[in-house]
Amino acid sequence: MAKEKKQFSLKKGKKWLWPVVRAVLLIGLSFIILYPVFKKISMAVRAKSDLYSPIVVWIPQNFSLENFRYAIEMMDYWRTLLNTTVLCLLTTSLTLISCALAGYGFARLRFKGSNLLFAGVIFTILVPPTTVFVPLYFNLREFTLMGLIPLITGKAVNLMDSYWPFVLTSITANSFKSGLFIFIFRQFFRGIPRELEEAAYVDGASITKTFTSIMIPNAVPAIVTVSLFSFVWQWNDSFYTTMYLTSAKVIATQLASLPYNLTIRLTQMLGGSAKADPFYLSMVQDTGILLAMLPLIVLYLFTQRYFVESIERTGIVG
């Protein structure tokens, strides 16, 4: 009897041991992930005087929004935000259309050599962008559209410092990481039952019609995933953005030049002779990063449930 009871409690102990271990692990790891965000918020709302105060660790003694004011002013935040949003929406929507078309083409509309071309898609994923970026830069600096533009205007156009490189690469599904998006779409469309499109064909739908009114409504999970990835990666991308855009104000370029601008500004305020406090600079820079992340966090809050659900049904898995 006693033995039985002991065994019972051992079993019970085993039953709750794992949830406890799991909870500790998950809370710990979540804390590590969230720590930088919390830290930035805490840094951003404190006044300059709290920076050296030994009693302030997390909650500032003197709340102040001065950091925000500086960072917003330095980055020209609102205009930058508008520019970046427009750019990201533009590239996301174009990438979405072109990648969905290509993905469906590769998944269901087989033609001679389509497997070979799909190998090309995989190849674009594998080649690092640094390998092609120098010739690409020259190509876009003197853009001829395969020799067509000089026929009309007489000389090549310089597409640098405009949104055109982004538009052209995303309308042709060759922007940042779009090989991956084509792959996701292809895998997803392959997962949709063939009977569905055959039924549509029997009912007299053309292939375009099948695509727009059967396939697209069924592909919402893939669309959400690709849109979110595309938007976020474009938002955070500094590689292409700093290459294509030299003077336009978008988050990536503004954030990169924030420390420099800030140093100049603060040195001016101090009369030009004294040097600005590097800690204070870092504090404002952190605020700038927070401001850059904020729209993404808001976006993620709205889409995350959908996103986590959708990725499971996207069938990246194949």
Binding site: S98, C99, L101, A102, Y104, G105, F106, R108, L109, R110, F111, K112, S114, L117, G120, V121, T124, V127, T131, V132, F133, V134, P135, L136, F138, N139, M146, L168, T169, I171, T172, A173, N174, I182, I207, T208, F211
Partner: peptide
Amino acid sequence: KAIWGFIYVLPWLIGFVSFFVIPLINSFYF
């Protein structure tokens, strides 16, 4: 289906040639 498949893939193909293959070859030449 084969014809439409090619049309659907065409935008990508144009981009692939002009923004990937040609730069890749040029890059090797450079």
